[in-house]
């Protein structure tokens, strides 16, 4: 069936199966920044923004986003580049398979809560797994990024 939605600011029309998940649709149309880690809503690497809110694209049927706004890291390139500088400074750069999802989460967090405490950041990101970094460096980087953005 034909589904129309707004992807990163452009109107898209995609032919999908009724049981197709957004993650598979996005990757099949060439949006490779969205990753598959578990396909079971338990790792966070497939995060996208649906009408500005982070969702797990492995658990959303594509037909459900008809008429809605979907964003991936391609829509926040400048922020992602800045966040990556903070990651680098704190030693949070490793394989990066989880990173685009973190960039989207941080973007969404900043909109919801421009001045989050360290605890609030942790709470917001607890569903995003990372097997490489041990998290602390990422947390520091994200705090630096959010702090720096305000000033």
């Amino acid at each position: 069936m034909l589904v129309k939605f707004n992807l990163n600011g452009l109107e898209k029309e995609v032919n999908v199966k009724a049981n197709e998940y957004l993650l598979d649709t996005l990757r099949s149309i060439g949006v490779k920044s969205v990753k598959k880690g578990c396909n079971a809503s338990s790792c966070g690497v497939c995060t996208v923004l649906l009408d500005d809110k982070p969702v797990l694209s492995c658990s959303i049927l594509t037909v459900r986003v008809a008429g809605h706004k979907v964003e991936t890291v391609e829509s926040i390139q400048e922020e992602a580049a800045k966040l990556s500088e903070c990651f680098s400074k704190e030693g949070a750069d490793q394989c990066g398979y989880c990173n685009a999802a973190f960039a989207l989460m941080v973007h969404a967090l900043r909109k919801e809560n421009p001045n989050p405490s360290a605890e609030e950041i942790k709470e917001y990101l607890k569903g995003n797994l990372c097997r490489c970094t041990g998290y602390q460096s990422q947390q520091k980087a994200i705090r630096a990024y959010l702090g720096g953005e305000e000033k």
Partner: peptide, 21 residues
Amino acid sequence: NITPSVDGKGIMMGRAVFTDD
């Protein structure tokens, strides 16, 4: 010295660089 990684930025920005990509 503190030196940024050579690939961190491109990866955070979501470039298609992994095997299945």
